[in-house]
Amino acid sequence: MINLSKNIKHLRNLKKLTQEVLAEELKVTRSRISSYEENRSSPTIEFLIDFSKYFKIPIDIIVKNDLTKATDVSFIEVGNKRVLFPISVDSDNENLIEVVPSKASAGYLLGYDDPEYIEQLEKIKLPFLPTGKHRAFPIKGDSMLPMKDGSYVVAEFVEDIKNAKSGQSYIVITKDDGMTYKRVYNQVEEKQTFLLKPDNAAYQPYEISVSEVLELWQFTCSINTQEYEEHELKISSIIQMFNGLGVELEALKKAMH
């Protein structure tokens, strides 16, 4: 529990709080704070819940990680990785999701690593999501049918982009192109690149260098903001069928050579 004692002290110092002030905020004695910070005793579950709510950081992150390298309570470096902390929680200690607004999505490229920008984003709660840091991103265009323009993709932050899973869909934040939603194929070991492939065959796949990627978020679920028309569903189904058929024909062609 050494990390825990150091984290309690470090997070208190980041907030510029004395032991007395923190004790008053959490309704405990100053000696208890001192005892936890010096690792003379282990915090109670009740204390950890209150501490977690006060700092808006989930308990498992406080317990499992060494947060002493943090210089800010919103963005924390763990090793050489930039990890987004805290996961916002509500009064019931349930995760909240930041929503990147559609009209101002271009501003995300400038504000993605600015705690003040992230802090002012609207937040929603989706209780069925798995654990992890999630964010909702607006979708523009029709390159990822049947996802409609104006929909939102809720995605989970990927700490190490080199671990991206080929064939999975990701929100990709790049230096030059900003925000895009594509199916990613991992070519890091061979070429230090990702292949970004739209599901809509009308658009061509393209490669980007790993060094261009600022953030990677893996698809968790989507939120449609418009109802589908019957003919749209048929069109998207046909497109998907032809896409799949193209893959099969390509494989058959190779097998015959």
Rank of each mutant, 00 (worst) to 15 (best):
Asp90Lys: 00
Val153Glu: 09
Pro198Ile: 08
Thr180Val: 15
Tyr206Ile: 10
Leu126Phe: 15
Val184Gly: 07
Ser151Thr: 05
Gly150Lys: 09
Lys162Val: 13
Ser102Ala: 08
Glu156Arg: 01
Asp142Arg: 07
Ala104Phe: 01
Gly111Glu: 07
Glu159Asn: 06
Tyr185Leu: 14
Lys191Met: 14
Gln204Lys: 12
Lys103Arg: 07
Lys162Leu: 05
Ile118Cys: 10
Asp92Ser: 09
Ile76Ser: 12
Gly79Val: 03
Ala106Lys: 07
Asp199Tyr: 08
Glu156Leu: 02
Glu189Asp: 15
Pro101Cys: 01
Asn95Glu: 08
Gly107Ala: 06
Glu212Leu: 01
Tyr203Trp: 14
Ser88Arg: 09
Leu196Arg: 13
Asp176Gln: 13
Tyr185Glu: 15
Ala164Asp: 09
Gly167Gln: 07
Tyr117Glu: 10
Leu145Asp: 06
Asn186His: 14
Val99Ala: 03
Pro101Asp: 01
Ile173Cys: 12
Glu156Cys: 03
Gly150Tyr: 08
Asp177Gln: 15
Asp114Phe: 07
Glu122Arg: 09
Lys162Arg: 13
Gly167Met: 14
Glu212Gly: 05
Lys103Trp: 03
Gln187Lys: 15
Met147Ile: 15
Glu116Phe: 07
Val210Ser: 01
Ala106Val: 05
Glu94Ala: 06
Tyr170Arg: 04
Thr131Ser: 13
Tyr185Cys: 14
Tyr185Ile: 09
Pro130Arg: 10
Thr174His: 08
Glu94Gln: 15
Ala136Cys: 06
Tyr112Asn: 07
Leu96Phe: 01
Val184His: 13
Val184Phe: 09
Pro86Asp: 08
Tyr185Phe: 15
Tyr108Ala: 03
Arg135Ile: 02
Leu84Asp: 00
Ala155Tyr: 00
Glu122Lys: 13
Val153Ile: 14
Glu159Pro: 03
Gln204His: 09
Arg82Gln: 03
Ile124Phe: 13
Met179Gly: 04
Pro101His: 01
Glu159Phe: 04
Asn80Val: 00
Asp114Pro: 05
Glu156Ala: 05
Gly107Gln: 09
Asp142Tyr: 02
Gly150Arg: 10
Val89Tyr: 00
Leu195Ser: 11
Ser166Pro: 04
Gln168Met: 15
Glu207Asp: 08
Leu214Ser: 05
Val213Glu: 05
Gly132Lys: 05
Tyr206Gly: 13
Ala155Trp: 01
Phe157Arg: 01
Met147Tyr: 13
Leu214Gly: 04
Ile97Met: 11
Val213Gly: 00
Pro130Lys: 14
Ser151Ile: 07
Leu121Tyr: 11
Ile171His: 00
Asn186Gly: 14
Val188Asp: 13
Val100Thr: 07
Glu212Thr: 04
Lys148Ala: 13
Asp113Tyr: 05
Arg135His: 04
Asn93Glu: 09
Lys81Tyr: 09
Glu119Asn: 08
Lys103Thr: 02
Ile118Lys: 14
Val78Arg: 06
Thr180Tyr: 03
Pro138Asn: 12
Glu98Arg: 12
Ile173Pro: 02
Lys148Asn: 11
Val78Glu: 10
Thr180Leu: 10
Leu84Asn: 01
Lys81Met: 04
Phe137Gln: 12
Glu215Val: 07
Asp176Val: 12
Ser166Gly: 11
Glu156Thr: 03
Pro115Ser: 03
Pro101Val: 00
Lys103Gly: 15
Asn95Asp: 08
Ala164Leu: 11
Ile173Asp: 08
Glu94Phe: 05
Gln192Ala: 12
Ile208Phe: 08
Gly141Ser: 06
Leu214Gln: 03
Ile87Pro: 02
